[in-house]
Write a protein that binds this DNA or RNA. Structure first.
Ligand SMILES: [Mn+2]
Ligand SMILES: [Mn+2]
Ligand SMILES: [Zn+2]
Ligand SMILES: [Zn+2]
Lengths: 139, 139
DNA sequence: TAGACAAATGCAACAATATTGCAAGTTAAA
DNA sequence: TTTAACTTGCAATATTGTTGCATTTGTCTA
């Protein structure tokens, strides 16, 4: 298990297990691209489905990945930036969902700005999802 | 079946059936609040689950309701405004999802504005989801 | 108003996604 | 090395969604 992975797990108070190492490796390789549970299953054929669910949950709880709101059916996850911790996520950026290839990517450059809401409402988090055709599918 | 409901179905080229009447009635009563499939099942205990799915699909296709992107697990739907047709939806507004009561409502007053995306990306639709505490749960 | 025809429904079967409980194995810390 | 807490794998179960097909219903036209 490479050094970056070990450090990331430790910094987020996650025990260093084989499964977590492999899953985190996949997220690091995916970079800005969000990943679904089925994709992980495919890339780790020997991994137990249920443990995968729990791994994702643990990663999310500890601020290592964030859930991506998306018009698709299956939940997607992507790597957080360094600022996210167990106590607070800082994923104030938009996501782009391509209707052609189905990929969803984090657009860190687009931050979700504060929006005026009706009286009595309190906003804790904002999700901005852009749907269309990605630069790879556009020609 | 009341007159408003009959007119709405006809305007959207939907055959007037008992099931559709009841489902549409629930949407009209819900107003700005989005509804999930399970909620419909609960409110219409005699309705067939599968037919409900197809009813929602038909309503969406014909521009009567729109799907609401949400951080929850189950898909939500809400009434469209009059401008939506079979050929095009015009649901460029934000949605508020309350983490306390779980309700999701349409915020028609907040329209999704155009956002500058990276080169090569083409945006077809924008979803803006605000998550927090609604005016009813706040105290 | 009585067919004809297309559309909608109900049921069965199945697929995909997700949660819980528990025993056994593993990790980290003392 | 021992211990305690955490993680895993498996079974069972729940939830959400899709497809095929025979039957019923709604709408249109003669
Ligand atoms: Mn992201
Ligand atoms: Mn809406
Ligand atoms: Zn694409
Ligand atoms: Zn609320």
């Amino acid at each position: 298990m490479n050094q970056t992975i070990v450090e990331l797990l430790q910094r987020h108070e996650l025990r260093k297990t084989a499964m977590r190492g492999e899953v985190l490796k996949i997220f690091l390789e995916a970079g800005k691209q969000a990943i679904t549970h089925p994709e992980l299953e495919q890339r780790l054929p020997d991994a137990d489905r249920i443990t995968l669910y729990r791994t994702l949950k643990a990663f999310e709880d500890k601020g290592l990945i964030h859930q991506v709101v998306d018009s698709g059916n299956a939940t997607k996850y992507a790597l957080c930036n360094d600022a996210c911790t167990e106590h607070r996520h800082h994923d104030e950026h938009a996501h782009f969902h391509c209707n052609d290839c189905g990929k969803t990517i984090c657009l860190d450059s687009i931050t979700t700005s504060t929006i005026q809401v009706p009286r009595g409402f309190k906003v804790q988090q904002t999700h901005l999802v852009l749907e269309g055709t990605c630069n790879n599918c556009e020609n």
